[in-house]
Amino acid sequence: MAKGYWVSAYRSVSDPERLAAYNKLAGPAVEAEGGRMLAGGGRVDAHDAGVAGLTVLIEFDTFEQAISAHESAAYQEALAALSDGVERDFRIIEGAD
């Protein structure tokens, strides 16, 4: 079964306090659903139309688990705290088998 990944590329942060509130809630929500942070907050070498901002990669055992984690009540609470505090590109992708 293929793994699932969350990929978040932050284009801008307009409200660092909202991002901090989101991070406080999102970390435990992701961990409760079996997610593991593989990368986040490190250096980014962006190409083409990419922005060298904060980028986060989280791994789940399955694609379905990644979808379920995003839909969980705990993660939805984190998203509500984030609100419009950032502009980001968020994707859930299926890993190669």
Rank of each mutant, 00 (worst) to 15 (best):
M37Y: 13
A32G: 02
I92L: 10
A29N: 01
L38D: 08
E17G: 12
S72R: 06
S8C: 12
E33I: 02
D45G: 01
D89R: 03
F90W: 01
E94L: 11
A21H: 08
V51K: 13
Y22T: 12
V7K: 00
A81H: 04
Y22H: 11
L79N: 11
G85S: 08
E94F: 09
V44I: 03
M37W: 08
V51Y: 08
A73D: 14
Y22I: 11
V51H: 11
A73R: 10
A2Q: 12
V56L: 14
L19E: 12
D45M: 10
G35H: 04
R91D: 00
T55S: 07
K24W: 00
A49P: 09
N23E: 15
G4S: 08
E64A: 14
A39S: 13
D45I: 10
A80N: 13
A96N: 06
G85Y: 02
I67M: 11
S68D: 14
G35L: 08
L25Q: 11
F60E: 04
A96R: 09
L57N: 06
L79K: 15
I58R: 11
G53N: 07
E31C: 00
L57P: 04
L38A: 05
E94P: 10
I93L: 14
V56K: 02
R43Y: 13
Y10W: 06
S72A: 08
M37R: 07
E77F: 05
A39Y: 12
M1Y: 06
L19D: 11
I92N: 07
E17W: 02
D15T: 02
G50M: 05
F90G: 00
A46Q: 00
A26W: 05
A74R: 08
G27E: 11
G95D: 09
D48N: 12
R36I: 12
T62Q: 10
S12F: 12
Q65H: 08
E87A: 15
I58A: 09
G41S: 05
